[in-house]
Design a protein around this nucleic acid. Structure first.
Length: 636
RNA sequence: GCCGACGUAACUCAGUUGGUAGAGUAGCUGAUUCGUAAUCAGCAAGCCAGCGGUUCGACUCCGCUCGUCGGCUCCA
């Protein structure tokens, strides 16, 4: 008996269906149009596959989550065929599905976006032809024979353990593939080439550089449009554009990858740090500061010289070699060593807003997101082994408090021991288990990245989710049992013996520069009142009102509000327009009425205007909004 | 660092097949003094990223360097 689960959840039962039944035949024509593939015993198969035994079968329709991946995989084949039709010498390698679409790595002469229209036209021809995808199973030797002219495919086939290898054919085009695929190319309704780049075969810099063509595909043209719109929206929010327009920061050729923060950017920067200090003080942290440049010997002791030298800036001073710090921890080690500690002093939570420099590849730089000089909101926690779980939990709760203040959601990932690492197996196990038990206690679901840890310990990475649904890794909590060893850190236990403390490295904003950039895009430049670089702009209607405007300005700045007066001889309309497009949350117009009654007329960014408010009626809700760091909703 | 694209006034951009540059915004000057998203006029502003080459002549073509962007890789 075969159960076929239909999308509307009704179940159709077929009695006495023989093994080898052609599934496609047993599904009505109209229904099959929405069917993409099927799932048997957890395996995704082509819709026109044969049923091997009595089993429960689920049909995958275009509405199912798996369907899009299947479609995009098929789309990659279509793109590959198009490229092969147009470029005779193109040798195909691999073409997987990725988050927003798919790519295909092809050994060919470089292509650029100028070549896209021709390739897309060829793709559309193939789509229109509604070519069926046909699965074919051949032996390994047959496959090797078939692909003998393509060294990449030969390498792939050689690496396969199976003796039977599946191929997929659409029309005359054959590709090595596990499948499954959609029934025919005509199901691809919206397909578009997105970008192109170079990529190394097997991600190995020593090997061939291939052309990577990115595309995306949907079952529906509207879905494609929606996707393109989202990309456009993200481009509009690009922090490099918004930050330039709002005068927050800039970059200069003289210091690639090293941002300059302007007065308005610094206002925001300071608000971010002020908030950070407030939360950390409440969480029992102290703040410290260590030098930017330290002797090479220290980096040798910490292990950075060995593991990270190629990314460090160095300098020779008085015949001694120094390195600009790429991390704050070795300095933190020296700080710890200046004292002597009892178990009663632990945990010791020492924060540091540390300026670090890392020589990233020039091609890796990207606005505030990837820079060479940045500030970490670092902290080192020194503790006893019994305190691990509690301290990790404390950090996770602090992370949650801070991110939620910005309206950012997050998820957690645990990274384990990498290939290049220091410390013993036992240390790694204890550290990793410590993180796991804290995560379990915290209760939020988390992923595991095997081998993605820091060289000195396992870590929990915190990925935030912004207003457009994009994720960014910002915070990280790293357990370190190696550095305390290397620096011979100790504390006196209750037993009057020396013990080795365990250490946490953690950041929450991560790189303050990067977090700043994320906030710009998250809010699209429209910052909440508590963060806005300019909170209030005062617009006198004519020159005779400038003095009164100044007195209003003085009273507001006295209360700590960030204000500007715009007394240019421009029209009121124009000044309002400019305040609006600069996203200044509160616009005060000062006219004769306001002067005579000493009241305020307030315009908020939504365009609403309230007139005749007394100073108190204005100040109370505004100061409350700032103090409570309220995110959205009406200020007044 | 690698592949591709790009680099024109403070900003956003135009500049057709090589004949040394234009617009809007911002700025400055003058007039306007305005009640909730652009008042008008004028002025100034560029070694066309830098350096070499081809050419009678280069912003336009070629090479290299620097920088930016999209990826690769990297992000301890």
């Amino acid at each position: 008996m075969v159960n076929i689960t239909l999308p509307d959840n009704s179940i159709k039962s077929f009695d006495d269906v023989p093994s080898g039944m052609d599934v496609a035949l047993s599904i009505s024509e109209g229904f099959a149009r929405n069917c993409v593939a099927m799932e048997i015993d957890g395996n995704l198969l082509d819709l026109n596959g044969k049923i091997e035994s009595d089993t429960c079968l689920r049909l995958i329709t275009t509405k199912d989550e798996e369907a899009l991946e299947i479609l995009r995989h098929s789309a990659a084949h279509v793109m590959a065929e198009a490229v092969q039709n147009l470029y005779e010498n193109a040798a195909l390698t691999i073409g997987p599905v990725v988050e927003d679409g798919f790519y295909y790595d092809i050994d060919m002469d470089p292509v650029s976006e100028e070549d896209f229209p021709a390739i897309e036209a060829e793709i559309n021809k193939i789509v229109k032809a509604k070519k069926p995808f046909e699965r074919q199973v051949v032996s390994k030797s047959e496959a090797l024979e078939l692909f003998k002219d393509n060294k990449f495919k030969v390498e792939l086939i050689d690496a396969l353990e199976d003796q039977e290898i599946s191929l997929y054919k659409q029309g005359g085009f054959v590709d090595l593939c596990r499948g499954p695929h959609i029934p025919h190319t005509g199901m691809i309704k919206g397909i578009k080439l997105m970008k192109t780049s170079g990529a190394y075969w097997r991600a190995d810099q020593e090997r061939e550089q291939l052309q990577r063509l990115y595309g995306t595909a949907f079952f529906d043209k509207k879905e494609l449009k929606k996707h393109l719109h989202l990309i456009e929206e993200a481009q509009k929010r690009d922090h490099r554009k918004v930050g330039t327009r709002l005068g927050l920061f800039s970059f200069h050729q003289e210091a690639p990858g090293m941002p300059f923060f302007h007065a308005k950017g610094m206002e925001m920067w300071n608000v971010l740090l002020e908030y950070w200090r407030y939360e950390h003080k409440a969480a029992g942290y102290v703040e410290t500061k260590t030098p930017v440049m330290l002797n090479r010997k220290l980096w040798e002791q910490s292990g950075h010289w060995e593991n990270y030298r190629e990314n460090m800036y160095t300098s020779v001073v008085d015949d001694e070699e120094y390195a600009i710090k790429p991390m704050n921890c070795p300095g933190g080690m020296l700080l710890y060593k200046t004292g002597s500690y009892s178990y009663r002093d632990l945990p010791l939570r020492a924060g540091e807003i540390g300026l670090v420099h890392r020589h990233e590849f020039s091609g890796a730089l990207s606005g505030l997101f990837r820079v060479r000089a940045f500030h970490q909101d670092d902290a080192h926690i020194f503790m006893t082994p019994e305190q691990i779980e509690g301290e990790i939990l404390g950090v996770l709760h602090l992370v949650e408090r801070i991110y939620s203040r910005f309206g950012l959601g997050f998820h957690l990932e645990l990274s384990t021991r990498p290939e290049k690492s220091i410390g013993s197996d036992a240390q790694w196990e204890e550290a990793t288990n410590g993180l796991k038990s804290a995560l379990d206690k915290y209760g939020k679901e988390y992923f595991i990245n095997e081998g993605d840890g820091a060289f000195y310990g396992p870590k929990i990475d915190i990925h935030i989710k912004d207003a457009l649904g994009r994720t960014w890794q910002c915070g990280t909590v790293q357990l370190d049992m190696a550095l305390p060893e290397r620096f011979d850190l100790t504390y006196k236990g209750a037993d009057n013996e020396k013990h080795r403390p365990i250490m946490i490295h953690r950041v929450i904003y991560g790189s303050i520069e990067r977090f700043f950039g994320i906030l710009v895009e998250h809010f699209a430049g429209k910052f909440p009142l508590w963060l806005a670089p300019v909170q209030v702009v005062i617009l006198p209607i004519n020159d005779a009102l400038n003095d009164h405007a100044k007195s209003v300005y003085d009273r507001l700045t006295d209360q700590g509000l960030r204000c500007e007066i715009d007394s240019r001889g421009e029209s009121l309309k124009k000044k309002i327009r400019e305040a609006q497009i600069n996203y200044i949350p509160l616009i005060l117009t000062i006219g004769e009425k306001e002067k005579a009654s000493d009241t305020l007329s307030v315009r908020t960014l939504d365009g609403k205007v309230r007139m005749g408010l007394s100073m108190d009626e204005f100040m109370a809700p505004v100061l409350k909004s700032v103090k409570a760091r309220i995110l959205e909703g009406e200020i007044i």
